[in-house]
Design a protein around this nucleic acid. Structure first.
Length: 586
DNA sequence: GCCGTTTTCGGCCCGACTGTTTTCAGTCG
């Protein structure tokens, strides 16, 4: 469990105690809100604490900050521990079961003396079998059946789905919906629409003046294996790939309200409704009520405008200051896919003893794809030759051979097309060794148009060692770009420990560039560090790290991630023309 | 617990759904 997950769990537990023992729903909500805010972070909360920046997280006030301070420095919080003594600890695992909240969990754990977290779920199963659950007042047949059903589903234990797995599923369904003449619009919702790197579930909205017909059409989607529930406004379906989808339907006159409501985030909505309330308005999924009159919105733009705000793009609806910026009409104009003019992290099919995996697509296909995307340039950055087992001169000749190979193919491509618009750069992706040295000598690096330098080993070094390692590597004049900076893999590897303040300061002063790696399992730099880098004046580049031509389409994922980090066109160097880019790379 | 251009007290988002209820409590998103 990561430190963020641990902290979220801890706060949720304390929240539950206040809910059941004090009946304090407001304090309960304050704890829940704080836990949600921490859950939404992509950076480690303890890193933020170390920098003394916990006060920048909305929902964390003086008290929470001192509790967290105590937790990170001593591993415990005395105030929390005294709260936990008031309840049987077996109630906490029960709350992970859908439909069981703090009150229900407490009633069960209290009645049956469930004092051990480890066995609480198993204990509950036994109690269910014994039929003793009816001993609790208010627990009747339906309640018990609901718990039984939820327990059965829970055993599947599904985690968060990566965006790249969820999105194609959603898009296929959207395409299907839009084929119906009764459906005028269809969109993803929730974390999927906000393009988080991982999503909790798949929610889809569609718009129709004929809701019953449209819903019937939706339920004829060939990929459906089961319709879990269906109603006038919402249906819940299960697809043959095992994924479950919520379908929400809206009339055209309230389409904007529905989209806004279900896109969230939760904290964004709460803040937005607080703003509305301060102005004598009430905001719901149906519209905005003013003087008992409901104003409906066909578009989200109209809704935000009614609240005297600029339109807020879904990617930044996270309650991280976007509402205040929208009120002042000072939102950044976020970078778009059409701004991108090239991709500098592409692996070619040049076959040689490489340190890591080779690309598989011939250059002609890569160039063709680049031109089709409207790019002005393509940069090839294969991994360096393997470190050991080759002499210095063998490595040099490999690099020269590669350059010739690529240039020959490029000339052949030039001849095969009428008008060449694409330009070629020959670079390399070079390993950063644990001590901060680059894996190639200066003589070899001089052969290159540019070098992306990346960490591919020894991820577990200390924060100080990694910080020094990166600064040392980027001190080399040919090392311009830091590739996949944190090394994180979505649902896989944790980001390295590093002092990003220090690194970004160095990058800003020395005109070095941080990569936003668009590979969907990486999305690295994470969004909050993108925002920080930009605020410190660091330039970024969005690259796909493609090993195969179709992966060049992943640029969109990098752009979404950049947008989540508030990146504008001016912050991203591969929005520059080829001429201007060359200046930056020198 | 948090929060503030009605600021250091006194508020705190809104609605759907469910189950158990004679008007509401709990859970979810």
């Amino acid at each position: 469990m990561t430190i963020n997950e641990e902290t979220v769990q801890l706060l949720k537990k304390v929240a539950a105690v206040f809910r059941v023992k004090e009946g304090d729903t407001f304090r309960y909500k304050a704890y829940i809100n704080a836990s949600v805010a921490i859950d939404n972070l992509t950076e480690s909360i303890s890193e933020i604490w170390k920098r003394g920046e916990l006060n920048t997280i909305p929902g964390l006030g003086e008290n929470f900050i001192s509790y967290l301070e105590e937790y990170f420095s001593t591993g415990r919080v005395k105030h929390f521990e005294s709260q936990f003594k008031k309840v049987p600890s077996g109630m906490f695992p029960l709350m992970t079961i859908r439909g069981i909240g703090p009150m229900t969990a407490y009633k069960i754990a209290h009645k049956f003396h469930l004092n051990r977290e480890e066995s609480a779920i198993a204990d509950l199963k036994e109690i269910l079998i014994s039929g003793k659950l009816t001993k609790i007042a208010g627990f009747k047949e339906k309640t018990i059946a609901k718990i039984q059903k939820a327990l059965a589903i829970q055993s599947f234990g599904k985690g968060r789905l990566p965006l790249y797995e969820a999105l194609p599923v959603a898009e296929d369904l959207l395409d299907f919906l839009l084929k119906s003449p009764d459906v005028t619009a269809a969109e993803t919702l929730g974390s999927l629409r906000r393009r988080l790197p991982t999503v909790g579930d798949i929610d889809i909205a569609f718009c129709s003046a004929q809701p019953q017909k449209a819903m019937a059409y939706a339920l004829s989607y060939p990929q459906i294996t089961a319709v879990v529930s269906t109603g006038d406004k919402v249906s819940h379906i299960k697809l043959n790939n095992g994924l479950e989808v919520d379908l929400k339907i809206s009339a055209p006159n309230s389409w904007g309200s529905l989209l806004q409501h279900y896109t969230g985030s939760k904290l964004h909505n709460i803040h937005l409704r607080t703003v509305a309330k301060e102005n004598g308005l009430s905001l719901s999924e149906y519209g905005i009520t003013q003087n008992k009159k409901l104003n409906r919105f066909t578009t989200e733009t109209g809704l935000y405008k009614f609240l005297k705000m600029s339109y807020i793009p879904p990617e930044i609806r996270e309650n991280n200051g976007e509402i205040e910026l929208a009120q002042k009409h000072q939102l950044p104009k976020l970078v778009e896919l059409s701004d991108i003019k090239g991709d500098l992290h592409i692996h070619s099919d040049f076959n040689y003893p490489s340190s890591h995996d080779l690309g598989v697509s011939p250059l002609a296909g890569l160039l063709q794809s680049a031109e089709a995307r409207g790019y002005e340039y393509l940069g090839l950055s294969d991994h360096n030759p393997k470190f050991a087992g080759l002499t210095e001169s063998q490595k040099l000749s490999l690099i020269i051979d590669r350059k010739k190979y690529l240039e020959t193919q490029f000339r052949a491509y030039e001849k095969s097309v009428k008008h060449r618009t694409i330009n070629l750069l020959v670079g390399l992706e070079v390993d950063i060794r644990p001590n901060g040295d680059l894996a190639l000598s200066d003589k070899i690096l001089d052969q290159l148009d540019y070098a992306i330098v990346s960490i591919h080993s020894s991820f577990e070094l200390s924060e100080e060692a990694n910080t020094q390692r990166i600064i040392c590597a980027l001190s080399h004049p040919k090392a311009i770009i830091l590739g996949h900076p944190t090394g994180r893999v979505i649902n896989g590897r944790q980001p390295i420990a590093a002092n990003w303040d220090k690194i970004f300061t160095f990058f800003a002063q020395n005109h070095k560039i941080i990569e936003i790696n668009a590979y969907p399992t990486r999305l690295d730099l994470p969004d909050d560090l993108i925002r920080k880098a930009i605020s410190m004046g660091v330039k970024l580049i969005i690259n796909t790290d493609s090993h195969e031509v179709s992966q060049m389409a992943n640029m969109q994922y990098g752009v979404w991630n950049a947008r989540r980090g508030y990146a504008e066109k001016k912050d991203i160097v591969n929005t520059l023309s080829f001429k201007d880019l060359r200046v930056v790379l020198e």
